[in-house]
């Protein structure tokens, strides 16, 4: 019976880990998306200073969460977010119009990570 109990404990741990990973990744992605929306609205209002400040805050949070997220999400999914985020600040600072497009790509990557972590029927298939 020891094996049965060990298996049950492992299974419940795995289920707990998987469920919590969905919530952790999803809440982080929702937060980043909100921050990206903040940058987008600042850019639309022409407030570069506020956009840069929001971008710095987002980058700082991303640096903290990146390693935790790497436990649950494959590196190929996280790299594009990292790259877009790195490129975004210099583009905003230089006033390059493509920064809006970069921001849109960043939000798209963030949403993809969040959506693909959810155990939805079509993702399972």
């Amino acid at each position: 019976m020891t094996r049965i109990y060990t298996s049950l404990v492992i299974l419940f741990t795995l289920v707990g880990l998987c469920t919590s990973s969905v919530f952790v990744v999803d809440s982080a992605c929702t937060r980043y998306d909100a921050q990206a929306a903040e940058i987008a609205s600042a850019l639309a209002a022409g407030d570069t200073e506020e956009a840069l400040a929001a971008c710095d805050a987002m980058q700082a949070q991303w640096e903290r969460f990146h390693s935790i997220c790497g436990i649950f999400v494959t590196g190929t999914r996280l790299s594009p977010i990292h790259e877009e985020l790195e490129a975004l600040r210099p583009m905003i600072a230089a006033g390059i119009p493509e920064s809006s497009a970069g921001l849109a790509r960043l939000r798209c990557h963030i949403r993809t990570v969040s959506e693909e972590t959810r155990p939805l029927f079509w993702h399972i298939l």
Partner: peptide, 25 residues
């Protein structure tokens, strides 16, 4: 593939073994 988190490799191994033990029970 080091791009795959180790946890993602360990999880199915452990899950399969647990299923097997429970199935044999």
């Amino acid at each position: 593939d080091t791009d795959i988190p180790l946890l993602q490799g360990m999880l199915p191994v452990l899950a399969l073994v647990c299923f097997e033990v429970l199935s044999s029970w």
